[in-house]
Simulated assay, not measured.
Amino acid sequence: MSEALRAYVGLGANLGDARATLRSALCALDALPGGRLLAVSSLYRSAPIDSSGPDYLNAVVALDTTLDAPELLAQLQAIEAAHGRERPWHNAPRTLDLDLLLYGHERIDTPALTVPHPRLHQRAFALLPLLEIEPRIDAPGLGPLAACLPALADQRVERSGTRLDLRLRAFADADFDAVVERWHACNRNAYSYVAGHQRHTLADARTFFRERLMPSAEITLACSLVGQTLGLIALEPEAQPGRGWVRQLAVFDGEQRRGVGSLLVEHAKARCPAGLRLYTFARNAPARAFYAGHGFEAIAFGTSPAPESEPDVLYGWPAPTGELR
């Protein structure tokens, strides 16, 4: 076929490093011929149904594809096989499960494939991530899928909120306008209690970014596979090899607690394995808890320069000695 159809694929795994397997499978789905990844749900944790073993991690992706349904099914099964999928018995635990949930508005009933998936309306671990990315979706023969959820209230499914589709890339000049605008809005929202931040205009943010960050810092962006920029980190190296300053770390509005900040911090640790330092405002309790959770220690307390003039905290990983500004 040549005209693209919208397909929805469910992902699940409960053996091995399930999170890493799902990330790898997601990259394989993004690389399918004749396709384009459009949306990826959060990760969900669910108890096995009609089976035993560890909890599953689940997600759903939406993609446009020019492959016909049997071709798409064959590609999904090839990805499963590449990730060690075996089928020793019905509902056995698995390294990777890829289910074709919906294929356009088509109804398919062959020995090899049934679409919509025959148990879609009975499985909260598939419905919840599907409805996250397409809340008003109808399925052929089933109608609005949201109406199926009340009957599944006894199925244990927990949304982790963590994004599955995270990747890192270097900041480029073409990113400047969009990234600075989101960074400026994020800072104003996060630091509403700091008068100096509220006075900063978008033009001020552009100047700071271009004249203070870009010349001296390595700026890395956290992005989704479909290209949305979710956050950034700016690392400034010290004279001592392997050490650096985190000059900026921002997780853009709507992306907090989804794994973006953790990915950026782990990137910084890999880039500066001998040590990192950073400042944050003393009353920024969420940031302080975040850094402590990632092994940073508060080593000095002071006041930030004007115009903020706000009590701040120097953090180090591992904790260095002495205070440097």
Rank of each mutant, 00 (worst) to 15 (best):
V115C: 03
V115P: 01
P116D: 01
H117L: 00
P118L: 05
P118N: 10
P118T: 11
L120R: 10
R123I: 10
R123C: 07
A124I: 06
A124F: 00
F125C: 12
A126C: 12
L127I: 10
P129M: 05
L130C: 04
L131Y: 00
E134G: 02
P135R: 00
D138Q: 13
D138Y: 09
G141I: 02
L142Q: 05
A146N: 03
A147Q: 14
P150E: 08
L152I: 05
Q155G: 00
R159Y: 05
R159C: 13
S160E: 09
G161R: 01
G161H: 07
G161W: 04
L164E: 07
L168P: 07
L168Q: 06
R169N: 03
A170Y: 02
A170L: 00
A172L: 09
A172Q: 13
D173G: 13
D173H: 06
V179K: 06
H184P: 02
C186N: 15
S192M: 13
Y193V: 08
G196S: 03
R199V: 10
L202D: 07
L202N: 01
A205D: 12
E211G: 04
R212G: 04
A217M: 00
A217L: 06
A217F: 09
L221A: 13
L230I: 11
G231T: 07
G231P: 05
E238Y: 13
E238P: 01
A239G: 15
P241R: 10
A250V: 08
D253L: 09
Q256V: 11
Q256P: 03
